[in-house]
Design a protein around this nucleic acid. Structure first.
Lengths: 225, 225
DNA sequence: AACGCTTATGTGACTTTGTCACTGATAGAA
DNA sequence: TTCTATCAGTGACAAAGTCACATAAGCGTT
């Protein structure tokens, strides 16, 4: 994929947008620019409202919240093929809140100016559909987060998160601290849970990495409601 | 306010909609119907997707979630002057989730068919603005709920909720069970916290009611971050 | 190799919150 | 009055969060 074709054809590769009306696609391509941001870029955050809507072509953005108590929790991730409309819209309306978006890897994204976004919503039924579906997905995800934080046991949540973060690999590069932010808990809690998993032979630990030894056992714990 | 003027002029009384283009207002009024639902009506819920978008003219709708574990938590309320677009949109997209909307009092609402809603979004910039602002408000509210559930102490949350539910009155008609659902915790926890508040002379309890004796003290606890 | 520095992890004591299995209390309805 | 449903109180215990540390592992410097 060379930069040339990226500029003109990213819409085709975007799952939710490839079925747009040709006219809409043209508008989207002509009025947007592809940007590349390095890992750890703070894409939006307190006092840093993005002026564009982003459509992620590659990489992932982690959206997390910093509480007034100093605690942190990961709210959700935006993956390639998804857009930031929700968060962006929120920030435009209420820029005094504490969520921030951080590039977890190098990120390629198409930046669409707000005005163009508004035009597209007006013009294209299928674009509207895409936008509302994106909103819906986020909302239901947030409902799920609330449910988990409020009612799920820590061991179940951790098992679930380990499976999720492993993405099929047998090893995860992360620290106890980072895992605690994923789940909105304290590092010590993660340390103890991982020790218990290790004692049971489900995982192996070394500084900065967690190895998954028995995925099946972890999954069966994670699937407990 | 007689039913006649309700049917034709509710848009004018709706904070977010009164500044719409005249053409849009006409469309909204002509293509919607005012409905009245009694208290405790389940407006939407598992297996009960609403076919219309509702604009609440009076009353409140409580949106709560029932976890697979059997636990419940109140997510937010829709008050007069607000709309259900978010929840409705969600339900249309993912009807397999567990949130439900319940009328907390008699509810008057304007029901707008989905097709009309879509047309309005396409036609009217100010309607789009209204819709996206509504989405944004909900999202930021949900972020707040997550923060509270994950990081706030129970006593702080309960004090906050008592102030909120009292709406300036010095007495709240509710049970410990209902309060526990508000905060997504167990009844026993509420009972103990209220006992502590009572011991300190901040509240007085009787079956089914909580009296606020020292609002100032409750507020200062609630304002702790 | 030895040192110091930073970051990561381990641990015990304690508090807060959630769970379970009850008991007792209250207000209506029969 | 007595029955019944709902509401509230309680003690024992488990799970999770907090605090104040102690170790340890990696890494660059000397």
């Amino acid at each position: 994929m060379n930069p040339e074709s990226l500029d003109t054809e990213w819409v085709e590769r975007f799952p939710g947008l490839s079925r747009l009306e040709p006219k809409t696609k043209t508008l989207l391509v002509q009025r947007s620019t592809v940007v590349i941001m390095p890992e750890k870029t703070v894409i939006f955050g307190p006092g840093k409202s993005p002026e564009n809507m982003l459509f992620l072509l590659s990489g992932t953005v982690r959206v997390q919240q910093v509480s007034e108590t100093g605690h942190e929790i990961v709210l959700y991730r935006i993956n390639a093929g998804e857009s930031c409309v929700l968060t962006t819209a929120c920030l435009l309306a209420y820029d005094d809140y504490s969520a921030e978006g951080i590039a977890e890897s190098e990120v390629q994204a198409a930046a669409v100016p707000r005005q163009v976004f508004d035009d597209l919503v007006a013009q294209s039924p299928s674009f509207r559909n895409f936008v509302f579906a994106a909103f819906s997905k986020r909302i239901t995800d947030l409902f799920l987060v609330i449910d988990e934080v409020a009612f799920q046991r820590m061991d179940v949540r951790l098992a679930h998160k380990l499976i999720e973060l492993s993405k099929g690999n047998h090893q995860i590069s992360t620290t106890h601290q980072k895992l605690s932010v994923e789940l909105g808990t304290a590092r010590e809690v993660i340390s103890r849970q991982l020790q218990e998993f290790q004692r049971r032979g489900w995982v192996a630990q070394s500084r900065g990495t967690v190895k998954i030894l028995d995925r099946t056992k972890l999954e069966s714990l994670a699937d407990r409601d």
